[in-house]
Every structure is written in C-alpha cells, then in structure tokens.
Computed example of a mutant assay.
Amino acid sequence: MEHQAFIELLQREGFAAPVTVEREPDGRLDAHAHPFEAKALILAGEIRIVTGGRERRYGPGDVFHLQRDEPHAESYGPQGVRYLSGRR
C-alpha cells in the first residue's frame, strides 16, 4: 500500500494520526498485548508477528492489523523494521 493511501485509510477508519516506530535488527518482543487496536504500514525492513499460533511476515508496503488486547509476539529482520502505526 502507498503511504498516502494508508494515511487516508486510517483517517476514514477513525484511527489517530500515525506515529513512526523503529525496531532494532534481529530484535524481538515476547508475547504481549496492547490496550488499543493498531494498524501499521511497513516502510522498511521486516517484521514477523505470531498470533494464534501462526507466524506472518510483513515487508515494505504490507499492512498489519492487531485488535485491542490481541496477544502476539514480534521479531524483526536483519535490518530491523520501520513502520507507521495508527491506533484507536
């Protein structure tokens, strides 16, 4: 997805203005959950997210969506990851 189209999608769906998130190369976050819904556009690098026992890989242009309080784990590629994240 293109950057501007993602911003417009977030606005239409009632998400707050997105923030840029950067994570370190080959890093990881063990299982956790957020008290908000998140939708994010990958700008650079790679993130792997495990939810419900299933791992999904996201790279530049991909969008991931996590529900409020959805348990998940994250790991990042050799270049880390940078993404725009909208929350509601």
Results as ranks from 00 to 15, higher is better:
P60L: 06
R12P: 00
E37H: 06
D26K: 12
S85H: 02
E22Q: 13
A40Q: 08
H3P: 02
E8L: 05
V19A: 09
H65P: 02
A38Q: 13
R82H: 01
L10P: 00
M1L: 14
I47W: 02
E22R: 09
A38Y: 05
V50L: 15
L84A: 00
R56G: 00
G27A: 10
Y58T: 08
H34C: 09
A31L: 14
G52S: 12
V81M: 07
R54L: 14
L29F: 11
A16Y: 08
G86H: 06
P18T: 09
H65Y: 13
Y58I: 01
R88K: 12
A44S: 06
V81I: 09
P35S: 14
L43P: 03
R28P: 01
D62H: 02
G14V: 04
Y58Q: 04
R23M: 10
A16D: 13
A38S: 13
S85G: 04
G52F: 13
P18H: 05
D69F: 13
D30C: 08
Q4F: 08
T51N: 14
A33E: 15
A17P: 06
E2V: 07
Y83A: 05
H34A: 11
G77S: 05
Q67A: 14
F36P: 00
D30Y: 09
T51Q: 12
L66C: 02
L9I: 01
A16F: 05
G61D: 01
H3R: 11
P18R: 08
P78C: 10
Q11I: 10
E22Y: 02
E8G: 00
G61P: 05
A73H: 01
R82T: 06
R23C: 06
R12S: 13
D26F: 07
Y58D: 07
A38E: 10
D30L: 14
R87F: 11
L43A: 09
H65C: 08
M1W: 05
G52L: 15
A5Y: 04
E74K: 04
D62C: 04
A73I: 09
A31C: 10
G59D: 07
G86Q: 07
R54W: 08
I47C: 02
R54C: 06
S75Y: 10
G45D: 12
F6R: 02
R57C: 09
L43E: 12
E37I: 10
E2A: 07
H65L: 14
R56T: 15
L9Y: 00
P35M: 14
G61H: 07
I42P: 01
R87C: 08
R12A: 15
D62P: 03
E55A: 14
R54E: 15
L43G: 02
L9E: 10
G80C: 04
A33F: 13
G27V: 03
E13F: 08
I49M: 07
D69V: 11
G45M: 10
L43Y: 03
P25D: 09
